[in-house]
């Protein structure tokens, strides 16, 4: 288990949801190798789809940039050890 502390870089999420995001990340890192970014991302996305409804997007990695449109109050970007985590719900799901 990685003992590192998660650091929030940017977010507009409620605090409870942020905590859930980091908890899901810790869970995923317990289950999967740190290099298996796809499985880590899948684990987190499924957690969020289950808890907060469908349409979540998750990107995990050590080297990426992206640009996206998200629903208000559903975005968090944080780092944990060597990885960066981006979680957001797509804009269309409010319609």
């Amino acid at each position: 288990m990685l003992e590192g502390k998660a650091v929030i870089e940017d977010t507009d999420m409620p605090d409870k949801m942020q905590i859930q995001a980091m908890a899901s990340a810790y869970e995923a890192l317990d289950l999967y190798d740190v290099f298996d970014c796809t499985s880590i991302a899948a684990h987190i996305k499924k957690e969020f789809d289950t808890k907060y409804g469908s349409g979540w997007q998750c990107v995990v990695g050590s080297s990426f940039g992206c640009f996206f449109t998200h629903s208000k109050g559903t975005f968090v970007y944080f780092t944990l050890e060597t990885l960066n985590f981006l979680i957001f719900k797509g804009a269309s799901y409010l319609i």
């Binding site: 298996d36 970014c37 796809t38 499985s39 880590i40 991302a41 899948a42 987190i44 996305k45 499924k46 789809d49 469908s54 349409g55 979540w56 997007q57 998750c58 990107v59 995990v60 990695g61 050590s62 080297s63 990426f64 940039g65 992206c66 640009f67 996206f68 449109t69 797509g90 804009a91 269309s92």
Partner: peptide
């Protein structure tokens, strides 16, 4: 780079596009 691509696609095909660019990442999307 990601911004440029997303912006052009939003204009050409309507919103809301998402774009991820990099060397090392994994993701799970709908």
């Amino acid at each position: 780079i990601a911004h440029f691509i997303k912006q052009k696609l939003d204009e050409a095909y309507g919103p809301a596009w998402n774009s991820v660019v990099g060397k090392d990442f994994g993701s799970c999307i709908t």
